[in-house]
């Protein structure tokens, strides 16, 4: 049972990451390699606020969202001037900078030693320390995020984002303030990724920088590309597939010595096949050009 709840909690954490990255990839057409950086910023910001300032989980979470959203402005700014591949490189730079700050600013983050003993969230004296209760908390937060994103995507704002993804020139001539729309998308995607960070930190009660590497960014991108982008069901299909697949592969009885390698190979093969035969992903409607 614990195993099942663990997977469900992971689905919630990665669900938020995939849905928020989808705002960038699927709605603004921007491939960002920095999503794990915002995930990490959220995890570290909320953790430090709890451990150093003794804040409760929920106010720390909300401050973490604002901190991450504000830092998203840093990458939003170059994105306004850069297109395509150059933007991807800029986001890569941001990812690497954030990782090395987390790794090297030992006075603040304890660097590679990580931060142990992160308190579990509590509300009105109730502590979410059983796995079942943590799942309920994660599912609740995931649902709120889902409703928020759905509201956003169906709003005039979401429609304007889709228009600039389809044809930026037409959107500009129709009065869409393209730079401002992109900046807002960054702020929102960065802020939402921070929620996953805080949830993750509160769940495993220990964080170190290796959870927020470039590899993690690529993993989140893979989720969105496998599932498909541009709508809400695509990224969620991707999360189901990419989180449950490795668990399923455990049961086919590969010898432990080769299992991780074989799993990596299966991922790689799946990605290649998908890009060849179904470039819009399992359930997406937008294809990154």
């Amino acid at each position: 049972m614990n195993y099942l709840f663990h997977i469900l909690i992971m689905l919630c954490i990665y669900g938020i990451l995939a849905l928020s990255l989808n705002l960038l990839i699927g709605y603004s057409g921007l491939l960002s390699l920095a999503h794990a950086a915002f995930y990490g910023i959220g995890a570290y910001a909320s953790t430090l606020l709890m451990v150093k300032l003794g804040l409760n989980f929920f106010p720390a979470l909300i401050l973490g969202i604002f901190i991450s959203g504000s830092l998203a402005l840093l990458i939003a700014y170059p994105s306004l001037r850069l297109k395509g591949d150059y933007f991807v490189l800029a986001s890569l730079g941001f990812q690497l900078i954030v990782f090395s700050i987390l790794y090297n600013w030992i006075g603040l983050t304890r660097g590679p030693y990580g931060i142990p003993g992160i308190p579990r969230p509590t509300i009105f004296g109730f502590e979410f320390n059983s796995i079942t209760s943590y799942f309920i908390l994660s599912a609740g937060i995931f649902s709120l995020v889902f409703v928020f994103i759905r509201h956003l995507c169906q709003s005039p704002f979401g429609r304007a984002l889709k228009s600039l993804r389809e044809d930026e020139i037409a959107a500009r001539v129709m009065g869409k303030n393209v730079p401002l729309l992109k900046v807002w998308t960054f702020i929102i995607a960065g802020g939402l990724a921070a929620i996953s960070g805080a949830l993750y930190a509160g769940y495993v009660t220990y964080i170190d920088p290796t959870s927020f590497t470039l590899d993690e960014s690529i993993f989140i991108i893979t989720i969105v590309l496998v599932g498909g982008s541009g709508n809400l069901k695509g990224p969620l299909a991707g999360v189901l597939f990419m989180i449950i697949l490795p668990e399923a592969l455990r049961f086919i009885g590969l010898p432990d010595t080769i299992a991780p390698n074989v799993r990596q190979m299966i991922y790689g093969l799946l990605l290649i096949l998908l890009m060849r035969y179904r470039p819009q992903g399992l359930a997406g409607e937008y294809r990154l050009e």
Binding site: S155, P156, F157, A160, M174, K176, N177, W184, I188
Partner: peptide, 8 residues
């Protein structure tokens, strides 16, 4: 061209 709902 000037829809206020396009600002979050």
């Amino acid at each position: 061209p000037n829809h206020p709902g396009e600002l979050p």
